[in-house]
Structures are given as C-alpha cells and as structure tokens.
Design a protein around this nucleic acid. Structure first.
Lengths: 190, 190, 190, 190
DNA sequence: TTTTAAGCGAGACGGTACGTCCAGTCTTAAG
DNA sequence: CTTAAGACTGGACGTACCGTCTCGCTTAAAA
C-alpha cells in the first residue's frame, strides 16, 4: 500500500450524504455536486472512489455486506420462510432510499453494463445462492414441489413487491399476505 | 382555434425520434436536446407539447390507446389466459424502448406525482379493469380460488417479468413457463 | 435573422469586466469564470461569443477599431512623427490592461495559430499599412534615408518600448527620448 | 549535510523534460504534472526544487550561467559588435523553448514580483553590465556618440528582435541587417 | 553500527477552473 | 396570435492541475 492512505471518514460521509439526499430528493435530483457539498468533500474526491452517480448510489443502498445480511430465515416450515421473505421484501424495499434507488439503477443498466453485472452479481452471491440451497432442502423434505426454480421464486417475490410499491403503494399493507398465498397455493381451485 | 395551426408531422417526428433514441441509448442518455436535434425541430417546440422528458417518453412508449390494446385474451380456460398474459408481458416488456423507459419512468414518480397518477390511471383503465372482470368470471365458474385479487395477480405477472428482464435477461426464454406454473399451482406439494 | 437577437449590453458588460479584471489581477489570474461572475452573465454565454480566454482578452484590449485609431500623426517633420509614435507607444502600452495582455497573448500564439493570425492581421491593417505610406512620403521628400523598412521601424518602436516596460519599468519616463534619438540619428558618431 | 543527498539525475531529467515540453507544446500546455510524468518523477519532487511553473521554466531556459555566456564579442569596430549582438539575439531567441518561454514569463511578472526581480537581475548581471563597459570604451574611442545609453540599446535590440519573432517570424532572415543599419545610422538622411 | 534527517514515489485531498451539455424561459420574426 | 428559432441563465457534468499533505521506503552522513 503506497501513498497517503484514504481517510475512512471521507467514505463514510459521502455514503451518509448520499442516503440522506436520496431519501430527501430522490435519485434524479441527487447530484454528485450536492453529495460532495453535503459531505463537505470536493467533487474530485467523490470521483476518486466511484465512477458515476449510479455506482455511488449502488454502493450506498446495496453495500457489499458479508454474512450478516437478512437472508432466508429458517422457520419450522418453508411456507413460513416464504411469508418472512415476502414481508422482508416489503419492509426493505419500502425504505425511501431503496425505493428511490432501485428503479433508477435499473434504468442505468442500458448505459452501464458494468453496473448491471455488479448489481446482478451482488444479488446472486448474497441472496440467490442461499435461497437455492434452501429450496433444495425443502424439496428434499417433500415440502415443495420438485422442479421449483429458486431464481424464479426470488424474481417473483422481489419483482412483484417492487412493482406494487412503485405503482400503487396504497395497497402495501394488504399485499404481502395476498402474494404469499398466491405463491404458496397458486390461483386455481384445488 | 386561432393562429398558425400545428404541423402534425412535427409531433410524429418527435415521438419517432424519442423511440429511436430510447432504443439506441437508453433513457439517461436521451435528452430533449437530442430528440429535438434528431427530429429537426427546436427545443421550445418540444416543450410546447410535453412538460418534461418523462412525459414525452411516457407518451411515446405508452400512448393513450383505446380498445385495440393486447389485453386479456379469452381462451378456453383461465389457465390458458394466464399463460397468454405472462407470454404477452415478456414479449411487450422485452422491446428495447419499453424496457428502457419503464424503470426510468418509475424512478421519476418521486419527483413528479402527476406522472405517477397518469401512468397508474392508464394502466388501471386499460388493463386492471378488464382483468378484474375476467377473474370474477373465472371465480364464478369455479376455475379460480375465491378471494384471488386480480390486482395482485397483475402486479405479480408484470413485476416478476419486468424484474427478471432487467436483472437477468439471459433467462427470459425459460421464465414464462416457470412463472406460469408457479402462479397456477403454487410452490407447495399438493 | 431568426430567433432572439443578442443583447448588446451583454457583450459590453463582458468586455468591461475583462478589462477591469486584467488591470486588477493580470492575465494569469483572470478566469472566464471570474469574468462571467463580474459581468453578471453565465459562463456559457461568454463561450457563445469567444472561443477562449485569449480571444476574449484580445477583443477587449485590441478591439477592431476602424479609422479613429491613434495612428501616425502628421507633423511638420518626420522626426516629429517618430517622436510622437514613440511617446504614443509608451502611453498606450503602459496601460495596465494592455501591459498585462500583450505578452500573455503572444505566449498563446504557439497554442493558437488562429489567434496569431488575427492579431497580426489587425496590427497590419490598422497601423503598418499607414506607416508604410507615411514612410514612403518622407523618403520622397528626402527626409528619410531611402531603404528604410517601415515594418522594421514599427517593430523597433513597439518591441523596444514593450520590452522596457516589462523588464525595467522604472526607466519608462526617460526611455522615450533616448530611443527616439537612437532611431533618428543612430549610435555612431557622425 | 544530513539526510539522503539529492539525486542530480532528477534535476537534470526535470529540466530536460521542461525544455522538451516547452518546445513541443508551448508554455500554456506545459504543466508541472506533465513535466513530472515525462521526467518519471513525482510531483512533490518538482516542488521540492522550484516554487512554480514559472520558476522552473526560468531555470530551464535561462540557467544561471557564469562567464561562458555569449555576450558582447569584441570585434575590430563597435559597429561589428552591434551586428553580432543583433545576429546573436535572433539566433538565441529563435530557439523554440526560448521563444515560448520569454513572453510567458514576462506575463507572469504581474503575479510574481520575485520572478521579475530574479529575471531582471540575471539579465543585468550577465549582459547589461558588460555592455555598459563596452559602450563606455567605444565612446572614449570616439566611435560612438556620447550620451548613448547602453540599457536603451540593449532593450532596443532584444525588444525589437523578440517582437518581430513573435508577430511576424516570416521576416526573421531579413530583419537583422535592417535593424542593425537603423541602430547604427538612424533613419534620417545625413 | 546504529541512528536520523532528508530524498523520493505514490497517492489522497481541497480547490479552482475548465469547456460542454442540457434544462427551462425569454424575446423576436415568420406564418 | 400561435408557432418556431435563437439567446440567455443556471446547474451540473466529468476532467485537469494545482499545491499540500501523509505515508512508507531508501539513502548516506553523523553519532
């Protein structure tokens, strides 16, 4: 490690400012200029760490956590697990910074394949991998229909909740239960 | 109607340019400046018709169609209908302009409640209303579990497909079938 | 002529601010940023008219005058004319804006051939052309040695005065007389 | 003398890089950053030796030579000496680094009085002092008009040549002779 | 020999300015 | 009397350098 080491307080202050501004003003109105100002840091210092607003926001909203992440609680039954997953998705995605950042970052994918890869990989490593194992266990125990694709389940949970929160947030409180039932039992009469 | 009449070709050219640029460069890189340039029109001419980039894109990507829209085909069984809905969502949301515009417009909701209302209403009037009737019929015929919320179903289909297309488009071809099965039968073993 | 016409007060204010800042802070410390601020104008508005700091300063310090320029006064004798030319050069080049701008613009020639051509041409059209005629007349009258090159004379006057003002301005008040004598009679004993 | 001694190759490399970049790109485009890069040296190392770009360039272009400098050749007649001085000025000031640096350094005088003093003193000690003696001798011998100011003569030579080289270098080859004649004999008919 | 002061490279950092792009609003002439 | 084009303010972009700083490592004279 050569050269003057980075001051960790700088990084903290920038990420903190990013989250605050995201929650206050949304993604579009967030500017690197404003983040730097709020963090009492110069603009070039921000660019020293993140190549763009999108990367900065990604880091702030989806930090590269290790194992202490929320993931896949182990309850008595897989049905309970699904219920917890859906509830967790609603809670997490409802946070103003997260709700503001997620669709915006996805909109940037077209312009920034690197961001796409980074975000997909982070989700994959953290969440999908565990859910796959979890589903495999439940299938082995006979709880879950063989052939269930864990990735499809995750997309169904995350995508449905996100879309609902964005397009008709008034229904958020009733949504989790209904979605859970749909995913567990399907819509056809038995 | 006094004064010089609007040239209808101007409107066409602007919307055409918007769709082209969306598909080519994505939402972020699309600017009203660039649209005006491509449409061989001045910037104020665009502002005369649409209040912002978001409204312009909304008009271009989700035009205010009447009844000739794709929605809710009536097949022999409701299961068939669901399958068609999912397939249709994949096809429609895969179009580059649509895929680029949708998350971006959703990201603008925070800054522009009017846009939010407009987009939600358009979806509601066109699609949700019909799906509600359709579900009611299927429930009455005993095909579908009583208590199924048509809005939840729609969010589940649209949200899941959109999320999948954005985050891991490589799986698009296998997704529709798996999602349809999950929605029809649920994930638990019968 | 379509569109909104340029506001002439904008041009005035920018040139005025440029001259003021030149005199106050010199060329290096002058920034387009500061000029815009002082002129109460936005930076892009400055760039709308001049491509660089050098071109702006050139316009401000050496405006494209027509005939009302100082040039080549017609006195009783050519010797008197030379004396006036030297005095005029001292007075003009002593002005802080001019003294600050001239060497700086010349230093930019290496980077900006267009500026070089512009500045040379402006000097040529305004001053050199007239001095050539004037010298020709004096030669015809027998006042001046045949073969005197008017351009060399101009360079000798301007260059000597400028160099002196820059390198040892303390001598400015004694310089004009000494230089005039040297140019008129030469340094050799008769 | 404690501590690690300075590596003399570092100084050399920096000055070499400075001269090269001056000749290639001119003074404005020269940056300490670029010099350091070219000399394979870190930026702080440059600042360890010179306070600014101007001082660095001054050192590179006008090094503090002692007696082996070009000045004031002693020929048979003073007229010959003048001719040599003018020719020497043309040759020296034509070198690209010198021609690029000279006006730029003069432009910095306004911001940096120390640089002004340094440069004036170096010229004074090296050249003016000798020329004064030389002129005194020629006056004593009766070759040169009494009252000739050696400093004015030096300014006339240096300033005229420099101005000509900067503003209309195309005439460089014809200039020396014409200027010499003018300085020796004056412009009036005898 | 072991200090120990300086040289040096690398990089971080707060600044300032750059030149550009775009957003919106205005002013004017054309239709 | 609206449409349409250019001028204009203003904000932000991403980059280049500046000059200073903190490190860690190297070098060689002094202790």
């Amino acid at each position: 490690m050569r050269g003057r080491p980075r001051d960790p307080r700088v990084e903290e202050a920038i990420l903190r400012a990013t989250l605050d501004l995201l929650a206050e003003s949304g993604y579009t109105r967030l500017s690197i200029e404003a983040v730097a100002r709020r963090a009492a840091v110069s603009r070039p210092t921000v660019y020293l760490r993140w190549r763009s607003k999108a990367h900065l926001v990604h880091e702030a909203v989806f930090p590269d956590m290790t194992a202490e992440e929320l993931p896949v609680p182990a309850n008595a039954t897989f049905a309970e697990d699904v219920r917890h997953l859906v509830d967790g998705a609603v809670v997490y995605l409802s946070r103003p910074e997260v709700l503001a950042a997620t669709p915006a970052l996805m909109a940037e994918f077209a312009d920034d394949p690197q961001l796409h890869r980074l975000m997909a990989a982070r989700l994959d490593d953290r969440i999908r991998a565990r859910l796959r194992e979890h589903v495999a266990g439940a299938v082995a125990r006979g709880e879950v229909r063989a052939g269930l694709d864990a990735d499809v389940l995750l997309d169904a949970i995350t995508g449905s909740v996100l879309f609902m929160l964005l397009i008709r947030p008034a229904d958020a409180h009733r949504f989790a239960g209904a979605l859970t039932d749909l995913l567990l039992h399907g819509l056809l009469t038995p």
